[in-house]
Design a protein around this nucleic acid. Structure first.
Lengths: 149, 149
DNA sequence: GTCAGTGCAAACCTTTTGCACAGGT
DNA sequence: ACCTGTGCAAAAGGTTTGCACTGAC
């Protein structure tokens, strides 16, 4: 029995005795509607359409709630901004990142995940989440690149 | 034929027509002597012992050179500081990170790397480097943790 | 009515940059 | 002598925090 992410948030708010405010719901809904790797800036911008008075601080604070409630995960790429993406254990994906054009391709590989679990077990580690990023040249950038050097 | 990392730096400096200054060598040597994931703060502190006048700016600038010359790689964990570690393709390692105590365990798994190459190939991607981090509870934190949530 | 949540601005921290001086070439 | 590199301090991002006001309970 799978509950929607919005329900999950509502439940989290309830369990923690937090208040359900319109700002929080605007932000959560904007987040859930989006996909990919949202920066705080992105999300703040989207939320402005619902409620132009919402400030960065509230977005930051709500994003923390989303992270704590297991709906979102923080990601650190190399652009100096923390980005947030949906956490859905069943459809976890990893990233191929082109260092030339910055394009990010998502992929999924069950066999790698299985091996990860093996490694973790060997170290007595209980894995909650993981992050796998491959950096290199994507197909198009690779063909431009001269192989000799 | 494998050259030392210091030689590699010297060569890089020469090729680019950059100047070899004592500050640069102090920083590079301090970096090469260290292991693990150095923050700029860490490295600055270490370098102070050789030359107390070296400032943060020079450390940052030299670390960029180290990155460009393929001696160091930047890493982004979740503490808001960029960390640098040695790049040695032959002895690449990945990380198990305890979300409770912050302990970082390094590991290496050739089979995972092989699968990564397969995935990359499927996408026409030429991989230069990668980053694999497993987040969870380490052995000691796990035993403290009550399994029944 | 109380107390957590919000919005704003200031504070903070890491990283970058401008500029005058130092030092490698 | 030239011109890059350095050190300092200021600036520039991104993120957090203090505080008075708002609004959920």
């Amino acid at each position: 029995m799978k509950e929607s992410e919005l329900k999950k948030f509502t439940r989290y708010i309830g369990e923690k005795g937090l208040k359900s405010t319109s700002q929080r719901y605007d932000i959560v809904k904007a987040f859930l509607k989006s996909k990919g790797h949202l920066s705080v800036e992105d999300l703040h911008h989207k939320v402005q359409k619902f409620n132009p008075k919402i400030g960065y601080a509230t977005v930051y604070r709500t994003l923390k709630l989303l992270t704590d409630s297991g709906i979102a995960v923080e990601r650190y790429f190399d652009d100096g901004q923390t980005r947030y993406e949906h956490l859905s254990p069943e459809e976890h994906h990893d990233h191929l990142i082109c260092v030339k054009c910055g394009n990010i391709i998502e992929f999924e590989e069950k066999k790698i995940e299985a091996l990860q679990d093996d490694v973790a077990r060997d170290h007595g580690f209980k894995v909650l989440s993981h992050k796998l990023e491959l950096y290199g040249y994507c197909n198009s950038c690779n063909s431009i690149n001269t192989p000799g050097d």
